[in-house]
Design a protein around this nucleic acid. Structure first.
Lengths: 161, 161
DNA sequence: TCAAATCTATACTTTTATGTCAAGATTCAT
DNA sequence: ATGAATCTTGACATAAAAGTATAGATTTGA
């Protein structure tokens, strides 16, 4: 389970915009520079994020990108879904081996794992907003560590029973 | 965040072995048939799993594959690490853009998210064994759903404070 | 109006992951 | 011993993801 390049760089570009004051914006060259990616690549990512409604773009001499809504209203699970696709609903169609359709119909040992994992990730990300990734306000680590601790507890209770 | 083909098919092949009685084994053609993958592909996966010590192989006419230990002692997080690499420790080296090294040194907004996510996934998988994916004994869904419920609660407590 | 700065959109190239092939090694049965 | 069945291993081919290039569209300001 890896984070794709699109997820990584797309998210990073968004975070750059989240650091801006209300009246500021960034151009493609600026974003590319700040994230150490090529301008062409940044352009493609911003185009995606723009289509999806996370950022607002304006063309022309004074143009650039800004967030389309406040950073505190942009949830990571939504961003990830745009950058990496809605994996949970396409998984079984993607892994059919050499057959037209997966051999496991209604009787798949690992499907609960796959689905459950995606849901756990989605749930965790749905609690994090862009604004939490900026400056001093970072509660992410604390939140995630707490989740982890409880995972252990849950497992003991359920599996031990 | 996607599950790779190697993770998917590798895990499925392992589950096939977990369904066997103690004195049974499966050959490459049998595994390939049961999972709807090519024999060549199954061969590569089993080779990986064999090298990693999850399965035991024997060559020759009466040969085939069996699990190297009881299914109840094979944890999914270990299997996934073999099939997909130790992502958490290589992530930042993989995503350096067009530079030699990532622009974010000691000041990365999204690193806590990446690391936290991987840890949450690892923790969840460390509670699931192969034996839980077989037959009637499936407690996976229950465990994962409970984790999800608690994630919500944790987020409320921490982020609301 | 025109040129410069900027984003947009698609096609193309490169890189990486996936999957296949074929020759070799080992074991078993006769 | 020999041949058939099986796993092993590295090289190769294919497909998918990632990244680049380029021509076009829009806006600003002189």
């Amino acid at each position: 389970m890896k984070i794709s390049a699109q997820e990584e760089y797309g998210l990073r570009c968004l975070v750059q915009l989240a650091t801006l004051a209300a009246d500021e914006s960034l151009t493609l060259p600026q974003i590319a520079e700040r994230e150490g990616v090529s301008q062409a690549n940044a352009g493609k990512l911003m185009w995606l994020l723009s289509k999806a409604g996370f950022v607002q773009s304006t063309r022309g001499t004074k143009g650039g990108y800004t967030l389309a809504r406040p950073a505190s209203k942009i949830y990571l699970n939504e961003v990830i879904k745009i950058l990496d696709g809605d994996e949970i609903n396409t998984h079984c169609e993607s892994y059919t081996g050499i057959l037209e359709v997966c051999v496991h119909k209604g009787d798949c040992g690992i499907r609960p794992v796959i689905v459950g994992l995606h849901k756990i990730v989605d749930e965790a990300l749905s609690n994090i907003t862009l604004s939490q990734l900026v400056g001093e306000e970072r509660k992410v680590t604390q939140t995630f560590q707490q989740i982890q601790r409880l995972e252990k507890k849950v497992a003991q209770e359920i599996l031990g029973s």
